[in-house]
Nucleic acid binder design. Sequence first.
DNA 1: TTGTAAGCGTTATCAA
DNA 2: TTGATAACGCTTACAA
Lengths: 319, 319
Amino acid sequence: MATIRDVARLAGVSVATVSRVLNDHPYVKREKVEAVKKAIAETGYIQNINAINLKKGKTNLVGMVLPLLDHPYFSQLMQGISTAASVHHYKLVLYQTGYQEGQEMEALEMLKLKQIDNLVICSRQVSLAVIERFRQYGNIVLFENGGNTPLSYTFVDHYACFMNALTYLYDRGHREIGFSINRSDGTNSKQREQAYKDFLETKGLRYRKEYIVKDCLYLEDGERVLKQFSKLQQRPTALLATSDQVAAGIMIASPEYGISIPEDLAIIGFDNHPIAKAMNITTIGIPLNSIGQTLFEQTLSESASHKEVPVSLIERLTV
Amino acid sequence: MATIRDVARLAGVSVATVSRVLNDHPYVKREKVEAVKKAIAETGYIQNINAINLKKGKTNLVGMVLPLLDHPYFSQLMQGISTAASVHHYKLVLYQTGYQEGQEMEALEMLKLKQIDNLVICSRQVSLAVIERFRQYGNIVLFENGGNTPLSYTFVDHYACFMNALTYLYDRGHREIGFSINRSDGTNSKQREQAYKDFLETKGLRYRKEYIVKDCLYLEDGERVLKQFSKLQQRPTALLATSDQVAAGIMIASPEYGISIPEDLAIIGFDNHPIAKAMNITTIGIPLNSIGQTLFEQTLSESASHKEVPVSLIERLTV
DNA sequence: TTGTAAGCGTTATCAA
DNA sequence: TTGATAACGCTTACAA
């Protein structure tokens, strides 16, 4: 494998000159440029990016920490990050964690070792305090409300979202409202749960844990919601679904359970995935693609910034 | 930032010894190991992976070339690759091409520069001949029938799939069969088209280009199929959909067009995405997750291998 | 069991 | 406008 030295020798110049030609530096005589280019062609010379990375202390690689890959929520986020990264000549390295702390730590270690320049954390188990310790090695950006952390973050106020959605249902006469969540220990889930409790208290409604369905994330989880509710004496008349996937799953399974939507059960989904539009599901629209882009851009910024993304309820036919 | 030399100095040993400790080499006195470990802790020393990569000529990064990220087809493939990669301590770098040759070339260039060790190409525009020229720089694995290319590949016989599906429909009385595809210049699309033509000829059926709907990939494309068909005098009685997403999109939009499935239109989807199960869509099951794993493993193998993945028609309620 | 020193392939400073 | 040469931070013969 030819190196810069081979090229220099063949072209009859120094390695410095070859490097200059390679990097489009000014102040190289045209003849030398030609000679170098010829030598490069003849030797089949290829730059070694690891050497360049070592020298420059930079890889143009950005990491993305996420629990799983097969959900539109993360796909859209990924699409956004990837698009923005591409503009800045960055490539995306995936750290799929499966909600395992160890996997997250691995991503942080890679930042430390300088395999990646920066890191976007879309979901985490590791404490903020631990993550913060790694920020000396590169920018770390969070997709959550990080409070007064020195890290950059972009977030959606899930508490407010949930409150709005609950109020929307309440105003339309619903008093028995349930909801589904994914992992109850998730940052977003906690906010949603809190909003739910606070709302109930404000309105003087009773908290019934049978109205809460856990571990719902995918389309196929929708049916479980129906199954759980159908066993109840007193059933909820409305539901806030974890995501549009779950909402769609419920829609699809509902005829089988003899439930009409919205008459028997009103549904509000989350994210505004394409399926929500196709199935006319009322949902909270979250611009995940553009959030992804923002997250990447924060990764590049010298100073930390905190951004809240406004979301809106999209009225369709399931309420 | 502390280097290996700082550690050596503080521990009172040579850099070679520090390196040995770092890499768990035998033949280091216990006391020295302790001294080195202490020095590492004190200095806050961190290995620089770029230096290691340069030295070893290896990055433990595998590239994945794919056109887009927001489709379950690619998500599942990605999931499979990522899972297998993780087992071998590899991380996945995404090269999202948007079907652009230039973007694909960039991935190949990165292989050449040694930013990634190997490359999985899930979709391509660039010719096989060009791709083959890059195999000297790392293993390249294809997700298609590469014929007698020296590259490794895993593939699904889309021609046979289509033939089977067409025969299945024919045997159930269908004579007017349409299909949808994504990009007509895609490798898979061409095979499907050829099967369609051959089938028609064998059975003495007429080829009608109105029965073919192009640029269909997403859920929201389903409606366009219905729109196109509804304009026709003579409408197809059955359809082979690009993917389950399109099939589902058709299912969802069908009531609006006064079309019942399968009575007015029988549908066979592709891939067996979760939505196909939820909506009881008859489909050709393609084990994308395990294909992804196979693709990654081929990436690691010294010798090229060619694998065909068997697929099966999953009978449900849309035919 | 340990240390010296030669790479790995660049970039960039400095002097000419 | 050019060339020597010193980094970048590590691994690994080779010699001791």
